[in-house]
Design a protein around this nucleic acid. Structure first.
Lengths: 221, 221
DNA sequence: TTCACCAAAAGTGTATACACTTTTTTAATT
DNA sequence: AATTAAAAAAGTGTATACACTTTTGGTGAA
């Protein structure tokens, strides 16, 4: 079960949504997707169902699938849970810190620094999210990593909906500061910086925009 | 989409698994389930897929669905995440505590006390899990509540696989102590008691058993 | 023009068909 | 009796068919 074809469709749609090629509210018609991927509706439906569980799309009975448009309330709740998890994750990381693990994060921050120069918004958002996912993975707790991964793809959607343009550089700087505190094994500071960082990201969201919906064939090609 | 029939099947199977009428490892054949619920395999497959996302069953390619048998490692990871989330949840609860919310928890503890007398193991486990879910719901954060709900149904499966018989009463007592600390608005104590409680539950798991698998027709009837 | 209404088109929800894989049974050989 | 091989049975994976619902587009009346 759980065919790899379905998984490919999920991946393709996830990228399209998180990278904002498919805007919130866009209708995802099953047959169109099926034609595009060269499969039957059966596999598309499986993929859509999985995406709905990840909250990247919503399924309305007899009406179909739509790219999710997280509300401000939902965004705040997701961030609240992230703060809970990531404060403790930071403590767990420091408890079992190793030079190799620190190197992974340092390398990642260096990569972020480079990407911030470029003008690719979705790449920036993806890298900024990955910092947190990497850190979760480095704790060695798969359950935590998976859970945080899910929250963060929801956040990517939220961020791309609401984040102001200048916020990305700020996030990258804060990641660098967090890694400094981790290197110094300074738990209190690291936890504080992580919590504040997430609060900053949340504060910078602007909830009073509306974005256009667009065409799926275009976005997936 | 997301027909209510599928949801009913998910609910029925979840209860059967969590209440231990279907043992870990049991094969769930699609056609047998379809016959039992009076639907086609299509709906059963949707339900199985959803259950696999909740980690209550595992799907093996071309071999089918089996009731999940969480490993000791997975159990420890799930509990680690619960400690992270629930420590912070306890803080959040106290931050916005109200008499009405405290009453809900007090009533629940009273209900637990009654149930501990009875001999119904699955009812006990369900009630003990619900204490934590209630608390999450009372924070008003749906994302948190749903996430914790999922972790706790995984825990129910783990607990029923591994929990020793005497542990239930102990848990109920600890829930009562936590509520006392909440009533006193004593954040530090409440958080400590919650963390210790989860550690106790985890410590009491016995990882060296093996349980028999059984018949699905019997379990669902 | 605008609204209501109806028919056609498009789309979703479920069942079923069929190819392909795994498991079980049977039969034959050592 | 134990082992292997082949055949049959059972089961999963995907496509397709069809009923039913929603959406769309158009026609006529106010």
């Amino acid at each position: 079960m759980e065919s790899s074809t379905t998984h490919q469709i999920v991946e393709a749609l996830t990228r399209a949504i998180v990278e904002h090629r498919l805007h919130p509210g866009t209708k995802l018609a099953e047959q169109k997707l099926a034609d595009h991927f060269g499969v039957s509706r059966t596999l598309v439906r499986q993929a859509l169902f999985q995406l709905s569980q990840n909250r990247l799309i919503t399924l309305e009975p007899a009406r179909g699938a739509f790219v999710a448009a997280p509300t401000a309330t939902e965004a705040r709740q997701v961030f609240a849970v992230r703060r809970m998890l990531e404060a403790e994750m930071t403590r767990a990381f420091i408890r079992d810190v190793t030079p190799a693990r620190l190197k992974v994060l340092k390398d990642h921050v260096a990569q972020e620094k480079k990407a911030m120069q470029s003008n690719n918004a979705s790449e920036r958002v993806e890298l900024l999210g990955d910092f947190h996912v990497r850190m979760a993975e480095l704790t060695g707790n798969d359950v935590l990593a998976r859970m945080l991964g899910e929250l963060i793809s929801r956040c990517s959607l939220i961020t791309l909906m609401y984040q102001s343009a200048t916020a990305a550089q700020h996030s990258a700087d804060e990641h660098a500061d967090i890694v400094k505190a981790l290197v110094a094994r300074d738990e209190a500071t690291a936890v504080r910086l992580m919590t504040e960082h997430l609060l900053h990201v949340e504060e910078n969201l602007v909830f009073d925009r509306k974005l256009p919906t667009n065409d799926i064939a275009l976005a997936l090609s």
